[in-house]
Design a binder for these strands. Sequence first.
DNA 1: AACTCGGGGCA
DNA 2: TGCCCAGAGTT
Length: 211
Amino acid sequence: MNRKVKKILDLLSKEYPNAACELNYNTPFQLLIATVLSAQTTDKKVNEVTKDLFKKYPTVYDFSKLTIQELENKIRKIGLYRNKAKNILKTVKILIEKFNGEVPSNFDDLVSLHGVGRKTANVILANAFNIPTIAVDTHVFRVSNRIGLASSDDVLQTEYDLQKNISKEEWIHAHHLLIWHGRNICTARKPKCEICPINMYCKYYKELYDS
DNA sequence: AACTCGGGGCA
DNA sequence: TGCCCAGAGTT
């Protein structure tokens, strides 16, 4: 990892010691469901729904007994609930029929599931299977672009592949730091550059300051 | 590349 | 009220 990246992550870590993924789950399957649900919404909302859902339907086999209408009703307070309910039940069927009821632990199988794209697959690989990767969502992408850390998620992935000096846990923490930073400080509109702890390293802020 | 899904939170 | 959101699928 290059020096600038490390310095930026150190600063963020010091500034936001409690930044972390807040999704509630106990198993890879529950993480899969929670992550599919989390698209275009917040962890807080997802947890409100999954708390009751995972208590009554903890496993993939429990989910397989749900009808589409039942699942829609249970996740209705989250947006996009029709698509998500449909995708989840399709995925549950595939997990049972093709993957012996287990969540697959490789990228290609994960993205073959309904409702699971590149970002969700990486979240599952990193958090459930201890596999080095990083999920690039809109926040990570935006923050990375602004500070000149990377111009694409592939570059961020490469950054991770190249460095072997920090643990997976540290890198996942770094990932959550970037997301937290993107949601709260480095927002898409009206970013709070004046209180940003890493503005001295930021290409976006420098251009703003120069103009 | 553009469009759609979407209820709820917040200004 | 209007705007926006820890994406993915379709056209």
